[in-house]
Amino acid sequence: MSKLFKPKIVSANDLFAGDVVYMNPGFGWTRKLAEAAIAHNEEAAADLLAKAMPQQEKVVGPYLADVALDDDGRPFPTHFREKFRTRGPSNRTDLGKQSVNPERREPLAASGGI
């Protein structure tokens, strides 16, 4: 099972600002994917999500998303939807996370993007 398991993080939107947040290892929330808690197996993933679900007063719609890990063990999104969520609108690079926090700008090759 662990061989097939893709590492996961919990993502959601902030209740007040509406922007994208990730659960950090302290079960709080961060705006940077690099600081997200990473689940390396099913159990850890379920546990992370269980910690997130009751936090309705802080976030909306927590869910598990697949990530891959770079050489330093930091997560980056594998699905193009999640890549866009780390950035902002692709037609307006002056807006969203990409405008203030160009932390990880993987090429969008996987999405056939621009």
């Binding site: 939107n13 600002a17 509406g18 922007d19 994208v20 909306v60 719609g61 939807r81 866009f84 969520r85 902002g88 609108p89 807006l95 969203g96 996370k97």
Partner: peptide, 12 residues
């Protein structure tokens, strides 16, 4: 929603 407010990818 009945007051026009969605939660989208990056924001409300």
């Amino acid at each position: 929603l009945m007051n026009g407010l969605y939660l989208q990818l990056h924001a409300y």
